[in-house]
Write a protein that binds this DNA or RNA. Sequence first.
DNA 1: GCAAAGATTTGCT
DNA 2: GCAAATCTTTGCC
Length: 226
Amino acid sequence: MPVLERDLLAAGTLAAARSLLGALLVREADAPGAEPRVGRIVEVEAYIGEDDRASHARFGRTARNGVMYGAPGIAYVYLVYGMYHCLNVVTEPEGTPAAVLVRAVEPVAGVTAMRRARVAFAGRRRRDRAAAEPEQARIALAPPERLAAGPGLVAAAFGLTREHTGLDLLDPRSPVRLERASDEAPEPEIAASPRIGIGYAGEPWTSVPWRLYVPSSPAVSAAARR
DNA sequence: GCAAAGATTTGCT
DNA sequence: GCAAATCTTTGCC
């Protein structure tokens, strides 16, 4: 499939978030004999401007968030809670700090590679390596639709880290890309809710319905259900 | 330089 | 339903 059009992401962030739902996250095979990974985006959140007290841009431009001020379609990957990475897609024209967090993806291809990446991640996550074994056993048996059902899990299943920050997700030659859904795919049904895990932001930011998701998807994040 | 908190997930009570 | 795990980023002294 062709990559997404950049104009869709240069538009307002909420419109860009809608465009991303149903689009495909693609990661090329990263080793000889490995398979490419493809997932349908089913849950996202918008973070818009320096006024948004939930956004990393709330302190103004810093060493970490600089890419948010740049061109649309660029990846912004950061580390949260010392152990999980989160993938964002920069939106809005250059100069306006905004991005869409990819919260959940429904696997379409490369399930084996995703599962293997999740198992490897679980092993690295804890200092006490033996403590990871029960979790690894569960991942080995997990249904495919839960392998990337959360922002930290998307990054783990696709092997994304901060080093991917700055990558152009709309370059057809990029190893990690965003592609259009096939023309036969139906328009996804979209619902909205407040964003997850941003209680620190205060009103109105904790209440604005800037989390968009596909309610019929079994891959919607678990955190969002609580 | 130091302390605090975080766009999460898992596991135990 | 709550706390732990883990470490980078940021603000403040």
